[in-house]
Design a protein around this nucleic acid. Sequence first.
DNA 1: GCGCGAATGTTATATTGTAACTTCATGGCC
DNA 2: GGCCATGAAGTTACAATATAACATTCGCGC
Lengths: 154, 154
Amino acid sequence: MGRHDHQLHEGESLKAAARERLTRQGEQWTDMRAAVFDALAAFDKPASAYDIAEQVSKSQGRRVAANSVYRILDLFVAANLARRVESANAYIANQHPACLHDCIFLICDNCGQTVHIDDDSLTSGVRAAAKTAGFSAPRPVIEVRGKCGECEDN
Amino acid sequence: MGRHDHQLHEGESLKAAARERLTRQGEQWTDMRAAVFDALAAFDKPASAYDIAEQVSKSQGRRVAANSVYRILDLFVAANLARRVESANAYIANQHPACLHDCIFLICDNCGQTVHIDDDSLTSGVRAAAKTAGFSAPRPVIEVRGKCGECEDN
DNA sequence: GCGCGAATGTTATATTGTAACTTCATGGCC
DNA sequence: GGCCATGAAGTTACAATATAACATTCGCGC
């Protein structure tokens, strides 16, 4: 099948796993980073840096600039705590930060709901095609825009 | 293999094929659209709408707003004359506008060169995964960021 | 305390993308 | 020819996304 079914985290468990992962990389788990992670994880669909900045501003009771959020999101993406959804200019928390995967996102054009699939048989095929074409250090971006089951009847 | 080797167009041949395709869809091939297509096809890597607006402004000897370029690019994408490269916020001419394919782009993070692959065995796998998850009208976005052969030594 | 580096704050600006409305060109119809 | 309907393009304004440069703060080793 190419699917895997290891531990998926959520809520406090996810937060703990994220913290564990980040500190293991030698990075600090600051209040600000925790706040950005909380905000990101609270969204049920990909959120823009500005959406997150707004939520963090509320939770902190002060104005937090998108700028600072971008820095932290970049760090999260590099550390595998979050993913960037390229076709949506948005970010989504990674539910198993300790585990490296090329992943596939299915994004509903109607409601924005995003499903995350790990299917190594597909992603490895894409990687192989890139390698054949002489590309090194490939970073596959596989996203599918369409209509989710709940929206398809509209 | 999954590759196909039908006619690839370039230069005047590509322009003629694009014109043919667009008019067959019931759309007009205006001077402005021709100018945008020329500019797009002249780039050897994905170009932003603003890059194209700048080139068209030069070729027309007057200021052309990005706005108008966006409208035409949207039309081109809908008509299969061009593709949008999501991870680069940019557009690239489709070298076989008469032929429908889900395509795969390999984009060099270093030099921006972009290679276009049609591999139906890969794209159909991605489509199938989307369908399994209940997604309809899937539109796969498959792009690979990496380093091309010429840049990999840096 | 002092110096250092990482993290964050602050301000400014660049880039990408849309919206609303106007003007222009074309072609049918009387 | 005059008139209008339509689609294309022009114009202006603005929204959304992203980066750059520099200042400030904070914790830590000395």
